[in-house]
């Protein structure tokens, strides 16, 4: 029983990380109805930027801030330079463009920072937590981080006029434009925010698995599963989905399929959700009367 509790708690912690990346995916899906397959690779690159900043002598927390800011700006640049032309393209074309970014950024990471595994310190320190039993400081920190991100996101979306404009853009871009909302700029901003949230996920993953160019590929697939489970257009669903997936992964890994089949488990969850629950848990089913 104690083991189940322990696995559940650490599942919540790892699930928080999936939730972060899933939120990034959902933010983009909500505004553009496209899935950014390059989200994980963008995040990995940002984690390298943090490590690079540490190498320059910056304290870890400041390096993390630099990395998140870097992600924010580069996310906006990528949207402006590449993605912009594909917003209205078919899903196929868009995904091909994303795959180009995926392998491009992945090889760039390897090229600049090398292919070897790099140890990455946790912002929350290496010890066990004094607050929650069974969990390390890093795990508790991950959970707190996702709670903070959810809170900030809620404040932004529901209580600022920029957030309202973002929701309007997601809902009906033409009407938003006609109301004076600078939709193009908001799409750019959305990519920036998503990239920043994704970078946080990478900063949380790296201390657990070591940093290498392919670090986020497995996490990405879990984030896909989380986003689909929660409903691709619901940020709150992504968080719920992420945590559920983390717990399922831990329990199933220990008791059902074995830890060597975790990616296959993600495949199974993805196919099952697509089949049985295509809207996701919190996905939007708007009732529209005409």
């Amino acid at each position: 029983m104690q083991q189940v509790i322990q696995l559940t708690l650490s599942g919540i912690a790892i699930g928080s990380i999936y939730a972060c990346l899933a939120v990034a995916l959902v933010l983009i899906y909500k505004t553009t109805h496209h899935v950014n397959f390059a989200q994980g690779e963008m995040a990995t690159f940002s984690a390298y930027v943090a490590l690079f900043a540490v190498g320059l002598g910056l304290p870890l927390w400041l390096a993390a801030v630099v990395a998140v800011l870097f992600a924010f700006v580069s996310g906006m640049v990528i949207e402006r330079v590449v993605i912009r032309r594909f917003h209205s393209a078919s899903a196929t074309t868009f995904v091909v463009a994303c795959i180009a970014l995926f392998i491009g950024i992945n090889s760039l990471s390897g090229w600049i920072f090398g292919h070897d595994l790099k140890a990455f310190p946790s912002i929350f320190g290496a010890g066990t937590s004094s607050v929650v039993p069974f969990l390390s400081a890093h795990e508790v920190g991950s959970i707190v981080t996702v709670v903070v991100i959810a809170g900030l996101l809620y404040l932004f979306l529901s209580h600022t006029s920029l957030g309202l404009a973002m929701r309007a853009t997601a809902d009906n871009p033409v009407s938003a434009r006609l109301s004076g909302v600078p939709v193009d700029w908001l799409l750019t901003l959305g990519w920036g925010i998503a990239a920043a949230v994704g970078a946080v996920a990478a900063l949380l993953v790296a201390p657990i698995v070591f940093l290498d160019p392919n670090m986020m590929i497995g996490v990405l697939i879990y984030a896909f599963a989380a986003a689909l489970l929660g409903g691709l257009d619901s940020p709150w669903g992504a968080i719920v989905g992420g945590i559920l997936i983390g717990v399922i992964e831990n329990l199933a890994g220990a008791y059902v399929v074995g830890n060597d089949m975790k990616l296959s488990l993600a495949l199974l969850i993805i196919v099952a959700v697509l089949m049985l629950l295509p809207q996701g848990l919190l996905g939007r089913k708007t009732a529209t009367r005409v």
């Binding site: 196929t92 995904v95 590929i217 896909f224 689909l228 089949m261 990616l263 296959s264 993805i270 697509l274």
Partner: peptide, 23 residues
């Protein structure tokens, strides 16, 4: 499934395949 969903499902398949083959 619509375009993105098929891409997602097949992406997961591609990632999982080496694991499945090693099982």
């Amino acid at each position: 499934l619509k375009g993105h969903h098929l891409a997602l499902a097949t992406f997961a398949l591609a990632l999982a395949m080496p694991q499945i083959l090693k099982h």
